[in-house]
């Protein structure tokens, strides 16, 4: 289970690196959406690993509500670049 988690951290490092080096706004937004879903899945995995369902509920909430911020931001950035 720990190996699974470390592989997930490696997968998380790719979009972070991408967000660091790419200059285009939309590429950064893609990296952000990828990171947002990956972190919430990781929270779920950790909650199963520790058998702690308080953390699990938080993971599901972040997964289902957190994406709304991304949509709001995509629209604001679109308005800015017009």
């Amino acid at each position: 289970m720990t190996i699974v988690l470390i592989a997930m951290i490696l997968a998380l490092a790719i979009p972070i690196y991408e967000a660091c080096q790419d200059e285009d706004v939309w590429q950064k937004m893609l990296a952000f959406s990828s990171i947002a879903s990956k972190t919430s899945i990781m929270i779920l995995v950790i909650s199963v690993l520790r058998n702690d369902w308080m953390i699990g509920v938080v993971g599901v909430l972040i997964l289902s509500v957190g994406n709304a911020a991304l949509m709001l931001m995509a629209h604001i950035i679109k308005r800015i670049s017009d």
Binding site: W26, S33, L70
Partner: peptide
């Protein structure tokens, strides 16, 4: 989200 991002990024 895929649809929204594609719409926002391509309508420039």
């Amino acid at each position: 989200l895929g649809y929204v991002l594609a719409y926002c990024s391509s309508s420039r």
